[in-house]
Amino acid sequence: MLIPHPLLGLRDAQEFTYLGDASLLNRPDPVAPGAEAAFCDYVFLRDNPAGVHRELWFHEQGDRSWLVVTRNTVTHEILSAELASDVKAGAAQ
């Protein structure tokens, strides 16, 4: 696979390490009521869709950036790739 790195262009997937569901960006508030249950969901429950999936890839043999890659798990088509820090910062705004 080739991953369209937002800064570096197409890079071979062998340079990356895969983590999985990008919902890991949404770490629950540790002091909110029901935090433990929220963390249980966060840590243990993942969607595993056949189709479009947002997932985390680490450019380990590259610029060491974490990417959010939107990928169709059936066709392996990659719809977009963004820097995770931008996604996270954007969500915070």
């Binding site: 983590l19 820097l83 995770a84 820090s85 915070a92």
Partner: peptide, 10 residues
């Protein structure tokens, strides 16, 4: 790096 970029980029 995950913590820095994905959890607390601020």
């Amino acid at each position: 790096e995950f913590a820095r970029q994905c959890l607390w980029p601020e």
